[in-house]
Design a protein around this nucleic acid. Structure first.
Lengths: 237, 237
DNA sequence: CGTAGTTTTGATGTCAGTCAAAATGTGTGG
DNA sequence: CCACACATTTTGACTGACATCAAAACTACG
């Protein structure tokens, strides 16, 4: 009998190169797999965790997609990011042991639950697991810095292009098409993420469609001219 | 004879509660102190490290202040943050081993250099040091999220107030006055950090001065009505 | 088929950017 | 100590990109 159900085993998971197991030996993977708890699938709009809630576990996205957002004292909501399969959520909770944002399912999806107490024990035992944790934390910081640059110094057009390119890259890394994908979030969510209004998102998508760079069918996006899309962000292209 | 010069010893450093040593035992502090290298003081505008440069060490600010910024492919500069004494820089380099931003001295200052190879060894030996590293990484993520919220959803007035309150809090934590301090950065740096123009910074400071909330004498700032300043950011105040 | 939610489109307003110039500060050499 | 050059900050006038408001079009789902 396996130490854990096949569904949660990191050994057979096709996401293992993107996720926490990256760089681990087989016996270490087995150890990691033993601490993972199954969480029942979440449905659209279901909360994975809430801001200020005590953080007992981190969560790795197994399927579906999630949106994280913070709410400030005035009730203003800011979408911080979107999580796709293989990505780890809740890293900002390691400071005080409480989640500093909400995470909500954008579609039906599932996660691997990693109880913090056991994860911490394992990190002491397996230095390469600790190392991978540190790399994931550092990656989050680097990508937050990119987001700060985007929000501080880009036009609506550049933000829209950057957003589509970011999804393209991440879907590509997952083995999906990097030119054709379905948005799991509403226009409103994209707008909030990019610091724009949903009307502006709509208009920018229309412009990109009319110039033949993309095709838009509701949530379905097809990137027709990837180079031209890149040139919006990097004119040297 | 001491294992390291008194200047770099974490045992006597008044910043130890804010910095990497937080939560460590005395013997662990001694170990940490042995790996710290002295760096000669940096003068204004001197680079501590550069974007894309190989990261051999992290740096903890000992005195003075630093500005970190990234430059995108178009040459656009975005100030990511300001580092005050007790704060650790270069955390975004842990992913690929290269700095992903520049760090420059805003005034004469000095740093403790922490060679990564030795720091990593020590983290394996001392779990509470590793834990503190993780907390510092998580703190950086949480504060980046706050910055994303600020850039995505705040007016110029709110950004200016938030910036002053952030400095007030951090100077306070260092044991300095939280109502009277000298800005070490130019208006242009503040503007770039907040995603605004330097003219807007100037105008916002003038407005705050005229309403009696602060007094401005060049780089010298005095917060006259802290509550009123807070109420700009949190109306419930 | 009808209702509710989402997206698109259009008209108008505003906050902050840009440009330009004046005011103030800083540093250097005589 | 002063005079000059240069950098930074402030102020004013104008502009423009995106927000806001409003309504229509589209989609989804019972």
């Amino acid at each position: 009998m396996e130490p854990s159900s096949p569904l949660t085993s990191c050994l057979t998971c096709r996401l293992s190169d993107l996720c926490l197991p990256c760089g681990l030996q087989i016996n270490e993977l087995e150890q990691l797999a033993t601490i993972i708890k199954n969480k029942r699938p979440l449905r659209i709009d279901e909360l994975l965790y809430s801001q200020d809630e005590e953080c007992q576990s981190l969560y790795a996205v197994k399927s579906g997609s999630f949106r994280s957002f913070i709410v400030n004292s005035e009730g203003v909501e800011q979408t911080i990011g979107f999580y796709l399969p293989g990505e780890l959520t809740g890293l900002d909770a390691l400071l005080h042991g409480r989640f500093s944002c909400y995470a909500v399912a954008l579609e039906t999806g599932s996660v691997c639950e990693l109880p913090l107490s056991r994860l911490n024990e394992l990190c002491v035992e397996i230095p390469s697991l600790q190392h991978q944790m540190t790399r994931i934390l550092s990656k989050e910081i680097a990508s937050d810095h990119d987001q700060i640059l985007l929000l501080g110094h880009s036009s609506a057009k550049e933000r829209m292009a950057t957003f589509l390119l970011m999804l393209s890259r991440r879907y590509g890394a997952l083995g999906f098409s990097n030119t054709e994908f379905k948005l799991s979030m509403r226009r409103q969510d994209i707008a909030n993420f990019l610091g724009l209004s949903n009307e502006t998102i709509s208009r920018q998508l229309t412009k990109l469609r009319k110039t033949g760079i993309i095709s838009v069918k509701q949530r379905g996006i097809q990137i027709i001219d990837l180079k031209l899309l890149r040139s919006i962000v990097e004119p040297c292209y």
